[in-house]
């Protein structure tokens, strides 16, 4: 039973049957379809924007910034986006914590409501906010009475950005919190650590990548946001006109070159951010 084989001529390479070749072709075909789909649908439009925006090289950015109103619009967008990101990084983490760790009546409703901004059209969100806080609503008038004006100010823009990006940080942090082994916190508390201390030293380091990842997604979403902002911002040039709305106006005024250079600048910022996010999330998945 030594298992010696009868001598048969050995071909060094196995025959490729029709079936095998067919499988290889199918694989190549699917890959080709994927490449063509993403190439035509994603890369070509981006190439169109970037070549137009970079038409005169780096000087085209200077021309873009020289367009009256361009710089204030970009500054306003970056500023409101940064503040909205900070607010939602904190509140999103708090919401995730409350949803995962606490049991209270209405928790499932709260969890469902957090997802609403993904379902409600952004323009409708803007309309909602305008209806509630606008000059024609009792709440808006009451707030104005105490000197706080929401509609047609940067506070309104901030509010809109916070609403539409609400789920992003929550949905990044929540799964990580769920997977977190409570034994670590228990160990910390048996060692005499208080709740706040063990949150800072045990929980926070674990969820930090998720908060950062969600925060970057939030920021990228904010600097491109149009639908929810366009109604409540009032679009006053130099005051409450954001970059996306400004690009929209330029495009409508048949000034595509200027629009494209501002769009390329904004795209470059969020492109870098999205890449960073992807890296961070990938690292988290590996850990």
């Amino acid at each position: 039973m030594s298992g010696a084989a009868q001598t048969v001529g050995i071909r060094s390479v196995p025959v490729r049957s029709k079936d095998r070749t067919g499988a290889a072709l199918r694989h190549l075909g699917l890959r080709g379809a994927a490449l063509i789909y993403l190439g035509a649908m994603v890369l070509v439009p981006i190439a169109a924007i970037v070549t137009k925006g970079f038409g005169d090289g780096l000087t085209s950015f200077r021309t873009a910034l020289a367009v009256p109103g361009a710089w204030p619009a970009i500054r306003l967008t970056l500023l409101t986006s940064a503040v909205a990101t900070l607010i939602n990084a904190v509140m999103g983490t708090l919401l995730a914590w409350v949803l995962v760790r606490y049991r209270f009546p209405g928790r499932r409703v709260l969890s469902a409501v957090v997802d609403l901004p993904m379902a409600i059209p952004t323009l409708v969100t803007g309309l909602m906010l305008l209806t509630l806080y606008g000059p024609n609503s009792p709440i808006g008038q009451a707030l104005e009475g105490v000197g706080l004006r929401v509609a047609f100010t940067s506070i309104g823009i901030l509010l809109a950005l916070c609403v539409v990006t609400l789920p992003l940080v929550v949905r990044q942090v929540q799964p990580v919190l769920l997977e977190l082994d409570p034994a670590e916190e228990e160990a910390a508390s048996t060692l005499g650590a208080g709740a706040w201390f063990s949150f800072r030293k045990v929980v926070f380091p674990a969820i930090r990548p998720a908060i950062v990842g969600g925060g970057l997604l939030t920021f990228a979403r904010c600097i491109g946001e149009f639908g929810s902002v366009v109604l409540i911002s009032g679009n006053l040039a130099g005051k409450t006109l954001t970059a996306p709305v400004f690009i929209f106006q330029l495009a409508n005024q048949f000034r595509p070159a200027e629009a494209a250079s501002i769009a390329t600048l904004m795209f470059a910022i969020s492109f870098v951010l999205v890449l960073v996010t992807a890296r961070l999330l990938a690292r988290r998945a590996e850990a």
Binding site: I46, A220, G224, F226, F248, A251, F267, F271
Partner: peptide, 11 residues
């Protein structure tokens, strides 16, 4: 995700 919808329209 990195592109504003407005930019997509412009493209």
């Amino acid at each position: 995700f990195a592109l504003s919808p407005v930019t997509v329209g412009l493209a």
